[in-house]
Amino acid sequence: MWEEKVTISGPYNFDLALSRLALDPLNTVDIEQRLVRVPLAFNDKKIVADIIATGTLEKPEFIVRASDEKEKTLHRLTEIFQWDVVLLHVHEHFQTTELKDLFNDHFGTPLVLEFDPFSSLIKSIIHQQVNLKFAFTLTERFVQAFGEEIDGVWFHPSPEKVAQLKVEQLREFQFSGRKAEYVIGIGALTASGQLDFKKLKTMADAEVSNELIKIRGVGPWTVENFLMFALGRPNLFPIGDIGIQNALKKYFQLEEKPSLAIMEKYKEQWNPYLSYAALYLWRSME
């Protein structure tokens, strides 16, 4: 077991990040202890990393503990929790925009990634066209049936495991037939190496989109969600997302949800940090 102190530049609101992680019942989060336990897989080695916040919003500091793979673990946690992003630059950008008050309310909220790109894509497929509560329930059933629990932390099933599933097995958990086919298909593509997440990390947003949109079951919303929450790309704004539309309606006190044309106009001034605008708007509704 090793332990490392990590200090980053503020602001960084880990408590708001934890509250969002806590929405997912599969995540192991302790709000009072300011703790999250992260499942990490390096090839065939599975590791649980504990992150405990010991600092403040302005002076963020963390204790990281894990059993092995110190260098890889710290690198991956830096990616997931975006510890190398200077959030003050993001905040200052929005002080000259109409979202100033929103960014003041959610000061220092980071864009935290899903713990694993493959499970992020599978989760996006599961979440399609169902309400958030049922989406979490479906994902929880899926992971607890086919994943693995280590030291009280759930790991999503591997691509190889997912590829071997039958549609009927997922139908038992209230998956639609089509959604079950999509999930198994993505498992098969990943297991065979046709879908390579390491390669996607090196590609531009448009290139990633072109690769993913070919996959059965993957549409624009899923691509944008993946770019934001699997790859941490900072300049995505899913204008087709109902949650964002409702958040804009509420924030700007509109009589009805904004049209796509109005949303395109709004977002011009939010470049190059559109992902943060989207995240903070979602947060305003959560």
Rank of each mutant, 00 (worst) to 15 (best):
E3H: 10
E4P: 00
F14G: 02
D15K: 07
L16C: 03
A17T: 05
R20N: 07
L21T: 03
L23I: 07
D24M: 07
D24S: 12
D24I: 05
P25Y: 14
R34M: 05
L35Q: 13
P39K: 12
A41G: 08
D44Q: 14
K45T: 13
K46Q: 11
I47D: 03
I47Y: 02
A49S: 11
D50L: 09
T54Q: 13
L57G: 08
E61G: 11
E61W: 04
F62D: 00
S67A: 05
D68I: 02
E69N: 13
T73V: 12
L74D: 01
H75G: 00
R76A: 01
R76N: 02
T78Q: 10
W83K: 05
D84R: 11
D84C: 10
H91T: 06
T96I: 12
T96C: 01
T97N: 05
T97H: 13
L102C: 07
N104G: 01
D105S: 07
H106W: 15
H106Y: 15
F107R: 14
P117G: 09
S119T: 09
S119N: 02
S120D: 02
L121Y: 06
K123P: 03
H127Q: 15
H127K: 12
Q128M: 10
Q129P: 03
V130Y: 05
N131C: 00
A135G: 15
F136D: 13
L138N: 11
E140C: 03
E140L: 06
F142C: 05
V143D: 02
A145K: 14
E148W: 10
E148F: 10
E148Y: 12
I150Y: 09
I150T: 04
D151P: 02
D151Q: 07
G152C: 11
V153K: 08
W154D: 01
S158N: 06
E160V: 12
K161G: 00
A163T: 01
Q164I: 00
Q164A: 13
Q164G: 01
E168P: 02
Q169H: 14
E172R: 15
A180C: 07
A180H: 10
E181D: 11
G187P: 03
G187H: 14
L189M: 14
S192G: 03
Q194V: 04
L195V: 05
A206P: 00
A206R: 14
S209N: 05
S209A: 15
L212C: 04
I215G: 12
I215T: 04
I215V: 14
G217K: 15
T222H: 04
V223R: 07
N225W: 11
M228K: 12
F229E: 05
A230T: 11
L231C: 13
L231N: 01
N235T: 08
G243A: 06
I244L: 15
L248V: 10
L248F: 07
K249R: 15
K250T: 06
F252W: 14
E255L: 13
K257H: 01
K257F: 05
P258K: 11
S259V: 05
S259H: 01
M263T: 09
M263L: 08
M263P: 00
E264N: 06
E264V: 04
K265D: 03
K265H: 09
E268Q: 15
W270E: 04
N271C: 09
P272K: 14
L274D: 09
L274T: 04
L274N: 15
L274C: 12
Y276L: 06
Y276M: 11
L279E: 08
L279G: 01
L281T: 06
W282I: 12
S284P: 09
